[in-house]
Amino acid sequence: MKQHFSALVIVAILVLSFSSVVAAQDSNSNAISEQTREQAKMMFTSQGAKVRLLQLEYALEKQIKIGERIMEKASEISESFDDTELGIILEEMKEAKKQVGSADSGKATDDVVQDFVDLKYDAVQLSQQFKNITQNSFTEQERTQLKEGLMDGLESEMAQTRERIRDAIKEHNSERVQNALQTMKLSDNENIAQGAKSGEMNKDQIIEQIGQKVKEMTSSQKAEAAQEMTKVAEQNRQKAESSTNAAQEMFQERLSERVQERLDGIKQALGLTQDDIDNRINKSMSEFPGQGSGVGGGEEQ
């Protein structure tokens, strides 16, 4: 009888351990959205990675500027409004932007994809935390006031960063054109790669020009080119997908470390106590998918 009971206990422990491992894997896999997966597909080259990191840096820079404008307006609308938490979130966003800026697009694909999915998650989570506070602290009418003129002049303020993204995209497109023409054994007498690099040709024009060259090929050349293009694209897709899947491992642990690192960077300036830091870490961890409250609102991550 005793032996049966011990066996049952062992089986129960095994089942419980297995289900917690599965649950942990499930919650980690929820942290990377489909949209992020799509964006990471371009990161199989260092130029593609550079584009994505610059786009994320731009998104954070814009968010910080908007956040600062909201905080200014919030104190005008309601004098009693306590903006301490919004201030901490904004400072965390600034630290996150620094983390994106120091991420190296030339690193191995696995590492740079991990940096991108981690920091994009943080950018979305911090934005959602900020939004939750403004939504809970202001009436609909006040929020309408907060939104008024929020974007005025923002594009021109950020023109330089936007130009850096455009330059990186041109370089990326030029590389992809050269690669595609090489794969299809086509010459570039029309200087399509150069047109992509200089910005004379946009995406539609690039595709149209290459499409014209493809039309001039024989049927067997077209079939061979299509097969080869798909083979290469599939290899690249698998490379990016395997890096994204690898980034799922230990996602929660890395999140906790990043929040700690960011708060360490701002604790002195904001006078944060260890309790404040622990509360922020707990909040971020409790909002992790599968941990109960979630980031909320079905926001894209």
Binding site: Q63, K120, S127, F130, A180, K203, I207, S219, T230, E300
Partner: peptide, 26 residues
């Protein structure tokens, strides 16, 4: 074959107006 080639190109070439959305603040 032509469509297959164009689809592959369409997936690899990035539109220069493309940006990343991280949500709203208010």
């Amino acid at each position: 074959s032509e469509n297959e080639i164009i689809d592959n190109l369409d997936n690899e070439i990035i539109d220069d107006s493309e940006l990343i959305d991280i949500g709203e603040l208010v």
